[in-house]
């Protein structure tokens, strides 16, 4: 039992990674991909969000919305989303491979 579980975990990554890569971002978060990279991998000077801590992304979005974090544009963006949307979007980015 233990051994086969170990095996499953050992063999799993390829499938798991593929599955994760195939889970699309929540629709509300699709707009983020036009700047942060199509899989959240970052683009030039725009930070990667893939694989970041979920809580950290949520906290950053709240701070942007409240003008408590320096921003050229994220303050204007963050104010357009509900808490529930931000939580779902953050969870998706956190689950993406770096």
């Amino acid at each position: 039992m233990l051994r086969s579980l170990g095996y499953a975990l050992f063999l799993a990554p390829a499938f798991v990674l593929q599955a994760a890569a195939q889970t699309p971002a929540p629709l509300a978060g699709q707009g983020c991909l036009g700047c942060h990279g199509s899989a959240g991998q970052g683009q030039g000077p725009v930070a990667a969000l893939a694989g970041r801590d979920r809580g950290e992304i949520i906290a950053a979005m709240r701070a942007f919305a409240a003008n408590e974090r320096p921003a050229t544009i994220m303050n204007r963006i963050a104010r357009g989303y509900t808490d529930a949307e931000i939580e779902a979007i953050a969870a998706w980015f956190a689950a993406q491979p770096r």
Binding site: C35, H36, S38, T72, I73, I77, G80
Partner: peptide, 30 residues
């Protein structure tokens, strides 16, 4: 939400937005 960039003498904001614009182009076309 939304709206335009702030007005005023803000050279760093303008410089960064020019860089981020290039990132936007590469990200969305990618």
């Amino acid at each position: 939400s939304g709206g335009v960039s702030p007005r005023g003498d803000l050279p760093e904001q303008r410089r960064l937005e020019a860089l981020y614009a290039d990132a936007w182009y590469d990200s969305i076309t990618g």
